[in-house]
Every structure is written in structure tokens, then in C-alpha cells.
């Protein structure tokens, strides 16, 4: 066990955990921030995507000891009132079916749009390929990303 001070969603959190614990389980089990989902544990499905600084990362394979003082943002902290353009676009397109993967999709899409505000279809597919949606809402996800890109430029 070891002590860590993590900056999560703008707040500093003190923790005493096994240093090998992935951030996913720190969030879910220790901090009760359960918006970040467990899907595969091996960085293959993207359900656990969070932001480390400005980058989308898979929290299931990111040990707590590797974070240092980098800012962590989870789906709960993406916006204060659920009104990030990507969240709003998801609502507008009524994207989800079961909804389980969508937090990861939204976190990946929001980091991607920050780097590439006007992506082509192919760029969206490339950026989002690591996020599985078992229900098959891919077309709506793509549409929502375009909707978000458009609202951002307005």
C-alpha cells in the first residue's frame, strides 16, 4: 500500500492503495466514481476511457503509481452540468441503446475533437476504433461527433 494524491475532476483526492491498482478501480471502488466502466481490463474495448491531461487513456491498464500530478478527468467531471458539446450532441442524437459503453465513447470523442475540431468520417472512425459498442450504435456516435464538431465551430 502507498499514499497518493490524485487530481481528479479538479479536486485532490488522498488515497492509500496498492500502487499497481489501475485508475479504473481506484475510481470505481475507492472513490465511488462509477461512470468509468469496466469492459475488458486489457485496453481493448475503451469503456474505461478517461482523460489524463488532454489525452484519452484507458484507465484499466493505468496504474495509480504512474499518474503523478497529471490531471484526471472522468465522465463525471467532463462538464459541470452535463452540457459539454459532446454530451449535448449525444442527447440530441439519442445515441445509446444499453448505454454502458457511452461514457468511454464520449471521453474518447471529446479528447479527439479537442485535437481535431473538424474531423472527416475516416478520421472519426480511426480515432474511435478502440471503443466497442456491443449494441451497434456506431452510426449515431459518428453523427453525434459531427454534431458536436459543428456546434463547437458556431
Amino acid at each position: 500500500m502507498a499514499n497518493f494524491n490524485l487530481k481528479i475532476n479538479g479536486k485532490t483526492q488522498q488515497l492509500d492503495v496498492d500502487p499497481t491498482t489501475p485508475i479504473l478501480w481506484v475510481l470505481r471502488d475507492h472513490l465511488k466514481l462509477v461512470g468509468t466502466k469496466y469492459g475488458c481490463g486489457i485496453s481493448q474495448c475503451g469503456a474505461c476511457t478517461i482523460h489524463l491531461g488532454d489525452n484519452a487513456v484507458r484507465s484499466c491498464q493505468l496504474p495509480v503509481s504512474a499518474v503523478g500530478n497529471q490531471d484526471i478527468t472522468t465522465i463525471e467531471g467532463l462538464s459541470e452540468n452535463g452540457d459539454h458539446p459532446v454530451q449535448k450532441a449525444w442527447l440530441e442524437e439519442d445515441v445509446y441503446q444499453c448505454g454502458y459503453c457511452q461514457a468511454g465513447q464520449i471521453m474518447n470523442a471529446s479528447a479527439f475533437l479537442k485535437k481535431n475540431p473538424n474531423p472527416t468520417d475516416e478520421e472519426i472512425e480511426g480515432a474511435m476504433n478502440g471503443n466497442i459498442c456491443r449494441c451497434g450504435t456506431y452510426i449515431r456516435i459518428k453523427k453525434a461527433i459531427k454534431t458536436a464538431a459543428n456546434t463547437k465551430t458556431v
Binding site: G35, G82, Q87, L91, Y96, A103
Partner: peptide, 13 residues
């Protein structure tokens, strides 16, 4: 619209 939409996009339990 899906009644759970807002909870889904904000990561509520």
C-alpha cells in the same frame, strides 16, 4: 428521447 439519456452521458450510477 431515452429517459436515461442524461444519466448515461454524465456517468451516473
Amino acid at each position: 428521447k431515452n429517459v436515461d439519456g442524461e444519466k448515461i452521458v454524465t456517468g451516473k450510477p
